[in-house]
Amino acid sequence: MTTHDFTLSRNAFGKLVFTAANGDRFEGVVPVRAFPIGAPDDGIALVNADGQELAWIMRLSDLADDTRAMVEQELASREFMPEIQRIQRVSNYNAPCTWFVETNRGDASFTLKGEEDIRRIASTSLLIADNHGVQFLIRDTQALDKGSRKILDRFL
């Protein structure tokens, strides 16, 4: 199904409603990114409550403005992945330890249980999971300031 074969709306409860070209309606539709870090605006599936794909969106920019806004709003409400912009300090260099960081959502601190909770997802990108399962993203380790890179290097 192409991106032009459906319409999206919201029901009285604020849930996304997908209406196919043939009139079939599905409530509680969820957008899912195929490549949330590498290409967040490309490859988005709209799936029903059972996880069945209803439509594939090649690029968010292909959608009409109102439809794109609904998809982006739904994605933003479901995704929480603060991006680390600076590592201020760590409590010590042995795990478990507490990291104090600046993110795109403000200052934060979290506990790193072990070095295995730091995963490389691309040559310069990392995902760091805290002890509560929150994922912190470092999009580009080379873009971090010298002090942040020095701290990070102690854990890699």
Rank of each mutant, 00 (worst) to 15 (best):
M1E: 10
M1W: 08
T2Q: 11
T3E: 14
F6N: 02
T7I: 12
S9A: 15
R10Y: 08
A12S: 15
G14W: 09
K15H: 15
L16D: 05
L16Y: 07
N22A: 14
G23S: 11
V32G: 03
V32T: 08
A34G: 11
P36E: 05
G38V: 06
G38N: 12
G43F: 01
I44A: 00
I44E: 02
A45N: 04
V47D: 00
N48T: 07
A49F: 07
G51Q: 08
L54Q: 04
M58Y: 10
A64Y: 05
D65N: 12
R68D: 06
R68A: 11
V71I: 13
A76K: 11
A76F: 09
S77H: 08
S77R: 10
R78S: 08
R78H: 07
E79K: 03
F80L: 13
F80V: 11
M81S: 05
M81T: 06
P82A: 08
E83G: 04
Q85N: 12
Q88L: 09
V90W: 03
S91K: 13
A95T: 07
W99Y: 12
E102R: 02
T103Q: 03
G106A: 09
F110Y: 03
L112M: 06
L112H: 02
K113G: 08
K113A: 14
E116L: 12
E116C: 08
I118F: 00
T124V: 15
I128N: 00
A129D: 13
A129R: 13
A129S: 15
R139G: 10
R139N: 14
R139K: 15
D140Y: 11
A143V: 13
K146A: 15
S148M: 02
R149L: 13
R149H: 09
R149F: 09
R149C: 09
R154M: 15
